Amino acid sequence: MRDELSGRERQVAELTAQGLTCAEAGEVLGLSGRTVEVYRAHAMIKLKARNAAHLAALLNMETLAALTARIDNLERQVDQLMVRITKQEA
């Protein structure tokens, strides 16, 4: 999903997901609040977000999905290590 956005759109969307206003995000990025509004609008159009809260929810859901996949991968690695340890102890 984030791949669909330009680098700046992604930055603005991530700051929106963190709860920053356009003015606050502008301060962080060294842009005017109006410029941030434009980037946010472009991100919302590309991701089909209805409003800023929906944009934030979409990004947070994507982050959660990525973290869940990473946790699943780590759990598999732990299981494999436990099997090796058990075999070595036997």
Rank of each mutant, 00 (worst) to 15 (best):
A13C: 05
Y39E: 04
A66V: 01
D3Q: 15
A90I: 04
V83D: 12
A13K: 08
A57Y: 03
A49F: 03
A25V: 02
E37M: 11
L74T: 08
E14N: 07
A49P: 11
S32T: 15
R40Q: 15
H54P: 08
G30Q: 07
A66T: 01
Q11V: 00
Q18G: 08
A25D: 01
L15S: 04
V38R: 15
V28E: 12
H42V: 02
R84E: 14
Y39A: 14
T16L: 02
R76S: 11
L31Y: 15
S6M: 09
K48S: 14
A53M: 11
L5F: 07
V78P: 04
T63Q: 12
D72M: 05
R84T: 13
E24V: 06
L20E: 02
E37Q: 14
G7V: 03
V28A: 10
K48I: 07
E27L: 10
A66P: 00
A13I: 02
D3W: 12
L5T: 09
L64K: 07
L59P: 07
M1S: 15
K46W: 13
E75P: 01
G19Q: 05
E24I: 08
A43F: 07
E89T: 08
E27R: 15
Q18W: 02
A23N: 07
D3Y: 09
A57R: 13
A41D: 15
M61I: 00
G33A: 08
G26E: 01
D3C: 04
G33L: 06
G7S: 12
R50L: 13
L29H: 05
D79T: 11
A66L: 08
Q11L: 08
L64G: 06
